[in-house]
């Protein structure tokens, strides 16, 4: 994995004379684009503390004028936190189990494909990788019918299993790229010591694959956490609703008041932003690993 972290090595290459004007221009472009990305967030947080009159007033954009002149904390106080907490909990359970299932399945499959020699292994691998291209919409109708037939609708499993399946292709891809880095001599040594295939998998491959766990988990996380289509169709009771659907239906109840909408979406965003601030390097590396190895 030396290559992966190479992107963060200090830069030996710096802007030379002649490139200076362009360099300044580039920095300006970057600053502008960063503002375009950050400003909506700033605006979201400030308007969550305002009433409509303040939000809609022109000429109040940047600090300090953009800050609320009266702080409407009641936007936050009035929220139904027990529902939001339920949605959050459901999202955590669904996402965690989906990631766990797809990760275990991916590691096992990756071991069978990359470490045991058999004729069709490449073909099977290619078949799994097709999964990256298959749109989730493809299984919406049939999986809905299957779930309805077995009475699985409106349960967490009706989301967990499809999410696990959709995360699988990418997880196998990432697992493959990690398993290649584990020397085959280790397997052979273990076989000589009398280990079975299963013994090698659990005692050698799994422990050495642990660094890939976070990469696979982070890559699958975003997909599962923000999924809206299956979540809005398969689960109808608020008891099992996940965060995106919960936020959508909850904000739908305040059509006129913007402040509380801002408060809901701010609260829904904060855990993600905090996690990102803490783990930004790891998160970025995971996305790079996932895409580049493909």
């Amino acid at each position: 994995m030396a290559k992966k972290s190479a992107i963060y090595q200090p830069n030996e290459y710096t802007i030379r004379k002649g490139g200076k004007a362009f360099g300044i221009f580039g920095v300006i472009m970057l600053i502008i684009w960063s503002l375009i990305n950050l400003y909506p967030l700033f605006w979201m947080i400030t308007f969550s503390l305002k009433d409509n009159q303040q939000i809609q007033k022109t000429h109040r954009f940047l600090l300090p004028k953009g800050l609320p002149n009266e702080w409407h904390w009641e936007n936050y106080k009035a929220l139904d936190y027990s529902s939001l907490l339920t949605y959050f909990k459901n999202s955590v359970i669904v996402t965690a189990l989906a990631i766990l299932i797809s990760m275990v399945a991916a590691m096992m499959a990756s071991y069978a494909i990359m470490r045991i020699q058999w004729k069709a292994s490449k073909a099977v691998n290619r078949m799994f990788l097709l999964g990256i291209t298959i749109p989730v919409q493809a299984s919406l109708v049939p999986v809905y019918m299957i779930c309805r037939y077995f009475d699985w609708l409106d349960t967490r499993w009706s989301l967990i299993i499809p999410y696990a399946a959709f995360a699988l292709a990418m997880s196998i891809l990432i697992a493959n790229s990690f398993i290649v880095g584990i020397p085959k001599d280790l397997d052979e040594a273990a076989y000589i010591d009398g280990c079975s295939r299963y013994g090698v998998f659990f005692r050698i491959i799994v422990p050495l694959m642990l660094p890939s766990v976070s990469t696979i988990a982070i890559y699958s996380f975003l997909q599962c956490w923000n999924e809206l289509m299956f979540a809005s169709v398969f689960v109808s009771s608020s008891e099992y609703r996940t965060l995106p659907v919960g936020v959508q239906s909850y904000t739908g109840t305040f059509t006129v008041k913007w402040g509380p909408i801002g408060a809901v979406i701010t609260i829904a965003t904060i855990p993600m932003v905090i996690t990102y601030v803490l783990l930004s390097r790891k998160i970025q590396e995971s996305f790079i690993a996932g895409a580049i190895k493909g």
Partner: peptide, 25 residues
């Protein structure tokens, strides 16, 4: 046997949620 055992979870997930639904669609 071990190839089959190791592939079962992934193949099941893949076939039930992706391949079979494509055929059904």
């Amino acid at each position: 046997i071990s190839i089959i055992v190791f592939l079962i979870p992934a193949v099941l997930l893949f076939c039930v949620i992706l391949i079979a639904p494509m055929v059904m669609s």
